[in-house]
Simulated scan of single mutants.
Amino acid sequence: MVWFEIILVALTLITGVIWLLDKLFLAKRRATADGLLDERAEPVVVDYARAFFPVLALVLMLRSFVAEPFRIPSSSMMPTLLIGDFILVNKFAYGLRLPITNRKVIEIGEPGRGDVVVFRYPGKGPGDPNTGADYIKRVIGLPGDTIEYAGTTLSINGQVMQYAPKGEFKGNGRNAEMNGATRLLEKMPGHEHEVLELPDQFVDPRGESRWTVPPGHYLVMGDNRDRSDDGRFWGYLPEERLRGKAFLVWLNCSGWFCTDSFEPSRIGNDIP
Rank of each mutant, 00 (worst) to 15 (best):
V2Q: 12
A10C: 09
T12N: 10
I14F: 12
K28E: 15
K28G: 11
A33R: 13
D34L: 09
D38F: 08
A51N: 08
A51Y: 14
F52A: 15
F52T: 12
V59N: 04
F65Y: 07
V66K: 02
V66S: 04
E68C: 07
F70W: 05
R71C: 05
R71W: 09
M78L: 15
L81K: 05
V89I: 11
N90M: 03
A93G: 05
R97E: 03
P99S: 09
N102C: 03
G109H: 04
G112M: 08
R113A: 08
R120C: 00
P122R: 07
N130E: 12
T131K: 14
D134C: 10
R138N: 10
R138C: 07
V139L: 00
I140M: 08
P143Q: 05
T146W: 02
T153K: 12
S155D: 01
I156F: 01
G173H: 06
R174W: 11
A176Q: 10
G180T: 06
T182W: 03
K187C: 06
E194Q: 13
E197Q: 15
P205H: 11
G207N: 10
V220K: 06
V220I: 08
N224A: 09
R225M: 03
D226K: 05
R227C: 00
D229H: 12
G235C: 09
Y236K: 02
P238D: 04
E239N: 10
E239Q: 11
L242Q: 05
G244K: 03
K245D: 00
L248C: 05
W250N: 03
L251W: 14
N252H: 14
G255W: 10
C258Q: 07
C258H: 06
D260V: 11
S265F: 10
N269F: 02
